[in-house]
Write a protein that binds this DNA or RNA. Sequence first.
DNA 1: TCCCCGTTTCCTGATT
DNA 2: GAATCAGGAAACGGGG
Length: 261
Amino acid sequence: MSVIPSTPLDSQLTTSWGLMNSYADGSLAMSGYSSRLWPHDSQPQFWSKYQVWEWLQQVMDIHQIDASSIPFQNFDMDGQQLCSLNYQDFIHAAGSAGHILFHSITELKWSGNYHMDIGQLEFKPELDFPCVFPDVSDPLGDIYDMTSVHNMAPDASPTPSSPDPRGTHLWEFIRDILLNPERNPGLIKWEDRTEGVFRFLKSEAVAQLWGKKKNNSSMTYEKLSRAMRYYYKREILERVDGRRLVYKFGRNARGWRESEK
DNA sequence: TCCCCGTTTCCTGATT
DNA sequence: GAATCAGGAAACGGGG
């Protein structure tokens, strides 16, 4: 399969793309999109699976596409595979959002990066991050690598009863998204960093990501939030009254404070 | 096999 | 009316 860089279809799509470029926030415009998010490895051919997911999230954020409208599992692929998809493949994989995704990836592929010198072609995606990627087949792999780093600290074990230092628990999953915002843009954000207060921005997208991690395609925010509420009793989370989608880390949550990093 | 833990699923009712 | 929150109850899967 191959992607045709410039077809009549492209010109049909420029209307929606033009709209995107007209956003008041210039950082959301496509021209700034690639440089802001992919400062070194903006060639999608070299993306890891996880970077493909990041791109997907960004496009959904920019276009305010409901995360549940795109089956993430259809994009369980690395950048090379992604770039080999044609327009019909995108439509098949993402439905009505397919044309947006197709145009986005075409833009990134042909946005001047092909003019880079041969030295840049030797770039490896994992070099862009401070941590290693032992398993690039796991889109969340880097998150859990970071968890491992946190747990190197003597008192950084999640809870006394936690059996898995790699961070398989939901609250650790949430914490690691918060600690790596550049890799999970727009999913969850700190409301009060020092107090450990955070808010879900894309609750269903986080639930899908959690479901992906647990091989549970039927995960929803409804179910995820029930699991979150069980943390109140264990004081891993504290209630934040009157605020929707807002939670706060409790006394038994470890590794979220900046001083613990 | 049993038990415990950490969810997951389903539910009802309340609140925003 | 939809989305979210709260929490009870039962079930499930993994680990010890």
